[in-house]
């Protein structure tokens, strides 16, 4: 089963993502901030995709993406940003850091499922 790591400080958003992806056959792991996500990935969590918020405590999503790219063992992990932010400079920074996509909340569950299927195919 394909494992997805969802990183968001909101339990409600994590539940919403799980409700969208679980019926589509994905296995979900959760982290409440970027630091927790990196710890899980560096501890061996084999995520095929990370879905990551931007505005989070401790380590925000863009900082997490930057740190992830600097860790050789997890640097190739694909990341989809899922956030309320729509500012062009944020999107450009995520792209420059190697993110695979950007989705603005509130999201349509069907569109998220389609994106995740495409990015994990």
């Amino acid at each position: 089963m394909t494992k997805i790591l969802i990183v968001d400080d909101s339990i409600t958003v994590r539940q919403q993502v799980i409700a969208a992806l679980k019926p589509a056959g994905f296995e979900l792991a959760e982290a409440g901030d970027g630091e927790e996500a990196l710890t899980q990935l560096l501890s061996g969590l084999a995520a095929r995709l990370v879905i990551c918020d931007v505005n989070m405590p401790k380590l925000n999503g863009l900082e997490m993406l930057e740190r992830l790219r600097s860790e050789a063992s997890i640097a190739a992990t694909p990341v989809l940003m899922l956030t309320t932010e729509g500012q062009p400079e944020y999107i450009a920074r995520a792209k420059a850091l190697g993110a695979k996509g950007w989705m603005v909340k509130p999201f349509k569950p069907d569109l998220l499922v389609a994106a995740v299927k495409k990015l994990t195919a």
Partner: peptide, 13 residues
């Protein structure tokens, strides 16, 4: 300014 991405929008790189 340049317009921001809209709510619900998906941009794949």
């Amino acid at each position: 300014g340049e317009a921001a991405a809209e709510e619900g929008e998906l941009i794949l790189f």
